[in-house]
Structures are given as structure tokens and as C-alpha cells.
Design a protein around this nucleic acid. Structure first.
Lengths: 343, 343
DNA sequence: TTTTGTTGTTAAACCGGTTTAACGAAATGG
DNA sequence: CCATTTCGTTAAACCGGTTTAACAACAAAA
């Protein structure tokens, strides 16, 4: 691969001039510019991204940090999110480095710092060690989701209006006459779960309605299959007390699907016997089911692109306003799976 | 950010020694090693990935090139594939750079070559300009899918046994008495579509059965919504001649879902009136539908990890055998959506 | 005419590491 | 005991660009 010196020699100019032709940072006369480009073409030369990065300290790359485990592959929500990130980033010629290494187990000593300009952090957890790492090394970052209390003041983040969303769908069910609602929530280790729990109970509070047996259940561990989680919990809570609950709020449509399967086995009809809805439609086809599942569209793609914008604002790229927090409103899609409560 | 010279000074050694402590390329005495590590810890030093790459010519990064458009977001099949790529790559500390820029429109002149050790190419097309680019610049690459004739001799690729799969499911339907089968294929611009078409007709040939009205339809364009494609084609072909076709093979389960919706509207029952199956289960929940959709699991995750292995073999990383082609066998999952042909 | 400003170009320093060649000290061997 | 390896360390060169400071050439201003 030919280098800048080769081009400089061939075009009879200095390497500085060649550099300026390609970076466009200083004006070069038409005549010299053409000489250089011609020489470059003949030598099949293109500038080395890495050598350039070394001195400019810009990598034109942002890292998308996804905590990843074998049992917890990417969901459709993630895909939408990644799609949003890619779209916005590539509009400024930025590229995405998928980073799945959790910093937890790595010895800092032997780790080399990443070659990225900034980081987008997915699925923040309580006591998330990634945050400490990024703050320590002064790497600009944006979180998608709710940072834990400890770090919230120092972090820039994009999130859904989760409390409100949980409140709204619960209120909707309350208005339909439901009083005993089972909420199959995300695991406690995910920051979002307690926020949604608060929204859930706020709905009862605002409506001045007694929550009766309404209950929030948390997924035991991140590794459990979501569908199985829904299935098992419904079997557990509906076998004991068949008439107790008249509605289920599932964390994701996968959980909802498992719940639906369990209900079918228990001979309970959706929505006649039990109303069912889910907070995230990871599967994009909820509406093709029978009955179509009511879900909340969390606008993954928007979350992704907004996160990139917040990061670009920090990096001084483009013309984005530097803000601390951006809330993306989810959209509640009411479909056939909801019914007024049975007497 | 402290650099290698700072550490060297503090530890009273040369930078070369510090370098060797971190890279482990030459033995260093226990005593000196500890001095260096201690100094590094105090200075919060970690080696710069970029400076290292500049001289080693290794970026520890592979690019995953996905042709991308606003109307054609990542599917679940892609996700599985990406998951496989991530798993295998990260096992050797390699990272993934998502690259969505198609080289088509970029002026080569102003483009800097990528900072990656190798490339994995998704969704190869006929006349795919990316291939020429990679060959020109001598960048190691592996294709997932079938390269076009033009490049097949020069390319290393991973693919499903597509012809055989198409043949097998068609044979299966023929054995069940089906004679008029509608095959809703991928667009012609995707190399896989003609290969599967060949498999489809080979099944009739092998069984010495007349294909009658059996027909292969190609998706007009990549941009059409798959579900709509299935819906429209079924409406078109089943309205004209309600008794013609007794089975449908859909390209993906999304297409199948659209087909299923159309059949319902036409008052045709699956599987009693029409058997339905799909070649790729992008949605992971085909089996939760009623009736469960028969699909072929294309093993996206395996395709991804095999591709990385073939690339690593080229790059001399790990201990993988250098081979030209790896075929990953899909798995045909027979579920409720297939029935013997109606008289 | 001299001074000041502008434009285009260059040589040299620099970015932060790795690698090479050389070398002294300690270990091995005859 | 001296010659030969081996081991650990270092100074200097290098990777392929960008940036700085200096300067020549020419135009505009005084």
C-alpha cells in the first residue's frame, strides 16, 4: 500500500501539501491539487485512517456498548435502536463499533483504551461499572435508559417516559373496570423496573382506587427466557386463584406471548376473561396475532438517533443543542387484547 | 492521558521495556515488571489502541458490512447472525465495526481505507461493487451468502445448503400430494433466489412429477414490505383460481404471515385448504402462532460464527483451517401448518 | 518605493506506541 | 578460566499521517 511520501515524491510536492489536499484543511492551488490527485490515483493511494487518528485524536467512531450474554441475545427492540444509531451516526460519517465486553472482569492493567470518540451505553444497571470506567477516563458518553441514582447527576441520557407510560396503561385498565392487575415486570437489577412500578401504583393512587390484589412481580434473573417467565408466572398466579386477576401487564411482548400460552392452557380467553398487554413490542408482529396484542411502542429507533445527537452535541459535531436529558414518548397501541373487566 | 514515556520515566526504565511489559512480546524480569505496572497504575496509564495499530498493522477489529437502507432495516435473521459474529469475534478479543456505507456512491479519492483487519460481507448481490473494492485493496473478506458467478472463484464464503433446502421442502410437499405449489421467492437481485428456484424445480424433476401450475414468483424490489408482498401475491393468485394452489412456500416467515392474513380474508384455512411454510424464521415465534408455522431454521448464528472463523483462518488468528467454503445446513421444522393436499 | 498582507508551500517536529540492533551481565560449557 | 550463549534492557529508528513555524512570491496599501 502506497503512502503519503510516495505520492508527495511523485507529485513533486511536500507531504504536508498532500495531506492538505486530502484533508482540505488549507487551501491548495488548483494546479498543485490536480498534480497530487493524479499521482494518488496512479499509486492507488488513500490516507490511512489510523495514522490520521493518531494525531487528530478523532476516530470517527462511536462505540455502542451492549451488555451481552449468551442467553440474552439482541432483541428486536435493540435492533430498532441500533438502526436509529446507525442512521444518525452515518449521516455524519461516523461508524459504529459494537462493544460487548463488559468491563467487569477485565483487568484494567492489561486493557487498552478504546479507539472511539464517544460511547453509547445500553441497558444501564444498578452499580454499573461501565459508568465509573467512562467517568474515570473522561470518555464522553450517553446512556440509553435510566442511569442509577448514583450516577444520574453526572450522566447525559435518553429515556422513555416510563413512569408515565406505566401509569397510563394502568389507568386505562382501571377505567375499563380492572381492579386486580398482575404486572410481570423486568428484573429489579434493571433500573427501569422500579420506575415502572411507581407508575403502576400511581395510577391507582390518582384514581383513588384500591389496588386490591394487584401485584408487581419481578423477573428473577436476566437470563431467564422471557416467554417462559410469562408462562410460569401466569400458571402460578392464575392456578391459585382463578378469579383474582382480570388483567396482565407484561414487560415485553415475549413475556406476553408466554402468558398468553399459559392462559390458553388454563382455558382463559383473551380478552374475554383476561385482558393482556405488553410494554414493549420487541417482535414487530404483535398486531398480527389473534387477538392482536396491545403494546407500547417504545420508539427504539428514535431513542437511538437521539442518543447519537446528544453525543454529537458533546463532541461538538454538527449543530446539536447540548442537553442533559431527552425523553422519547412511547406510543400506546390499543388492540384487541383488552376488554372491560369481567364482573 | 499519560503516555508510555511518562510510565518509563517514573519506573526508571526505557519505553521499550514498558512496551514489552504490556504486550508480553519479550520476557521481562519479575522485578522490573512490577515496577512498571505500579508506575502505570499510579499514572492511570493504558496503552493507546491506535498508536499500537499504526505499527502492528493489526486493528483487532473486523468490519461487518451490511447493505442498509431506511426501508430495509435489520431483520431477526440478521440479529442472529450478528450475535454469532460477536460471539466468535469476541472470543479472540476482536471487535465488530458495523459498516453500512455502500461503496457505490463514494468517490474513492476522498475515502480513507478502513481501519479493520478483515471484512464480513452480508447479503451479496449480483454485480456487487463491494467485492471489487475489497479485491482491489487486498482486504481479506468472507461473504455470508452466495457470491455472484463473477466473483465466486475468488471468494471465501459461508452459505446455507439453499438448493437442497428448497428441494427438500418441495419434495416434502410433493410427497404429501401437493402438485400446484406457489413459491414466493426473494427478489432476483439476491443471489439466493435463483439457487432456491433450482432446488424447487429439482424436487419435481427428481420425483418425476409434473409441476403443473406450480410457479415461482420473485419479489419485485428489496424495498417492499415482506408481509405486504406475501399478502398481495396470495390475493392475486388465489382470487383468480381458488382451487389452483394447495401449498405456499414463503421466502421468510414475514412473507408467510402476510400470506396467512390474505388466506384468512379469502376464507381459506391453514392447513386444511392450503399448506403454508416459510424458508427463514426471522421472527423467532413462528411456533407460537396458530397453527404453528413450519419454517426452516437457517442457523443465522452459526453462519455468523463460521464466517468469523473463515476470516480468522485467513488472518492467521487462532487455529482454524483455511477453507474456501463452508455450508451450514438449515433445519426444517415441520409444524402444524402443513397438511396433505386436498383433492 | 517601501511596507504590509495574503496565499501557497515546505521542512521539521510530533502523535504514542513497536521493533531492531546493540550491548552488558549472568549462565553455560569445554 | 576463558569462550560462548542466553537473558534483560536500552537507544534509536520507524509506522503514516498532521501541524507548526518559517518563508518565498506576489498583491495591495501607504
Amino acid at each position: 500500500m502506497s503512502k503519503i511520501d510516495d505520492v508527495a515524491k511523485k507529485a513533486n510536492v511536500s507531504k504536508g501539501t498532500v495531506s492538505n489536499v486530502f484533508s482540505g484543511k488549507r487551501p491548495i492551488s488548483e494546479k498543485v491539487k490536480n498534480q497530487v490527485l493524479e499521482a494518488a490515483k496512479e499509486l492507488n493511494y488513500t490516507p490511512s485512517h489510523i495514522a490520521r487518528s493518531l494525531v487528530t485524536k478523532k476516530t470517527m467512531t462511536i462505540s455502542l456498548n451492549i451488555p451481552y450474554s449468551k442467553n440474552l441475545p439482541l432483541s428486536n427492540f435493540h435492533i430498532n435502536l441500533i438502526n436509529g444509531v446507525i442512521m444518525e451516526a452515518s449521516s455524519h460519517n461516523y461508524r459504529i463499533l459494537i462493544d460487548t465486553l463488559s468491563r467487569e472482569n477485565l483487568e484494567l492493567q492489561y486493557m487498552s483504551r478504546e479507539a472511539v470518540d464517544g460511547v453509547i451505553l445500553l441497558d444501564p444497571r444498578e452499580n454499573d461499572s461501565r459508568m465509573k470506567y467512562l467517568l474515570d477516563f473522561n470518555i464522553p458518553f450517553v446512556i440509553i435508559g435510566q442511569p442509577s441514582e448514583e450516577y444520574i447527576a453526572q450522566s447525559i441520557y435518553v429515556d422513555n417516559n416510563n413512569k408515565e407510560l406505566a401509569k397510563n396503561i394502568t389507568s386505562f385498565l382501571i377505567n375499563k373496570g380492572h381492579r386486580n392487575i398482575l404486572y410481570l415486570n423486568a428484573p429489579l437489577s434493571m433500573t427501569v423496573s422500579t420506575i415502572r412500578q411507581n407508575g403502576f401504583f400511581k395510577a391507582f393512587n390518582d384514581a383513588q382506587v384500591n389496588p386490591n390484589n394487584s401485584k408487581v412481580v419481578f423477573k428473577d434473573s436476566l437470563d431467564i427466557d422471557p416467554s417462559l417467565y410469562g408462562y410460569n408466572k401466569v400458571k402460578e398466579f392464575f392456578s391459585k386463584n382463578r378469579d383474582g386477576y382480570t388483567a396482565i401487564i407484561a414487560d415485553t411482548d415475549k413475556v406476553g406471548l408466554g402468558a398468553s400460552r399459559a392462559l390458553k392452557e388454563l382455558d382463559l380467553a383473551v380478552p374475554e376473561d383476561v385482558s393482556l398487554l405488553a410494554l414493549s413490542d420487541d417482535l414487530v408482529l404483535s398486531h398480527e396475532l389473534a387477538p392482536p396484542l396491545s403494546t407500547v411502542d417504545l420508539k427504539g429507533s428514535e431513542l437511538g438517533s437521539e442518543a447519537v445527537r446528544l453525543l454529537f452535541a458533546q463532541l461538538g459535531i454538527g449543530n446539536y443543542k447540548k442537553i442533559q436529558t431527552k425523553i422519547v414518548e412511547g406510543k400506546f397501541n390499543i388492540r384487541g387484547s383488552i376488554h372491560t373487566a369481567k364482573e
